[in-house]
């Protein structure tokens, strides 16, 4: 009996150590909960879909990643571009969402000029420094803000893609970055669900496609979009 107890004890200890190892690895590798930017609701707005809450978000894109919240991939990288202040966004369901992006970064030719056009916004337009536009020249794209998701029977299809006109890198503002272009666009949200957004301008690492580095790490040029 005593022998049995001893064996049972060591067996439990082994399992505990094993489980502990897994848990330890999990803790080591787990993604810390990101800081979430919750859209600010300012009243309601009359739309063709009825009266909806009007939510506002503001993003900025920087040519380095000294700003904003980053995941466990090592915080700030001077050579990585980033969106800020947060890349985890949250908006209310069934509302009109207006996003303003300050584009501080320069740009070049985009691989696929589909993303030099505006898709999925109200009336298919966005505002660049107050001027409405539906597309920009493919060789002056700085970044894009492209929202997409996981369609399933109970989740609405949401797709929004807006090109962000490259800033003139010669003109430096007071924060040390180029004076930004301000891009504003609005779109409707449906039922609650989780979506993802990312940049479609290849501005990361790699010899080909340049989608590595900042482009392939959540918290820099990609993030979540929660409709709640």
């Amino acid at each position: 009996m005593r022998r049995f107890m001893i064996r049972a004890f060591f067996l439990v200890v082994t399992i505990a150590i094993g489980v502990g190892f897994v848990v330890g690895a999990g803790v080591l590798l787990a993604q810390p909960a990101p800081a979430v930017q919750v859209a600010e609701v300012r009243g309601t707005v009359q739309t063709p879909q009825g009266e909806l809450p009007h939510a506002f978000l503001k993003l900025e894109s920087y040519p380095d990643s000294m700003q904003g919240f980053h995941g466990p991939d090592g915080g700030a990288h001077p050579d990585w571009v980033t969106f800020g202040p947060q890349t985890a966004l949250q908006v209310p369901a069934h509302s009109l969402v207006t996003i303003t992006v300050l584009q501080h970064d320069g740009g070049e030719v985009i691989t696929n000029d589909y993303f030099a056009k505006v898709h999925g916004t109200v009336d298919g337009v966005a505002q660049l420094n107050g001027e409405p536009f539906t597309q920009i020249p493919p060789d002056t794209v700085g970044h894009t803000w492209t929202l997409h998701g996981i369609p399933s029977p109970d989740q609405d299809q949401v797709f929004v893609s807006v090109p962000l006109q490259a800033a003139n890198e010669e003109v430096v503002g007071e924060n040390g970055y180029p004076v930004p272009n301000e891009v504003t666009f609005s779109f409707y949200t449906g039922d609650p669900g989780l979506y993802y957004w990312n940049c479609e301008f290849p501005c990361g690492d790699g010899t080909y496609a340049n989608f590595g580095g900042a482009m392939s790490a959540e918290g820099y040029m990609a993030g979540t979009f929660t409709v709640l």
Partner: peptide, 22 residues
Amino acid sequence: VTGNQWVWNFTYPELGNIQSDV
């Protein structure tokens, strides 16, 4: 059909190159 990193897009060349995400 063009696959881009993490977005599909579709072009209809016979319909004047209209484009769509769906």
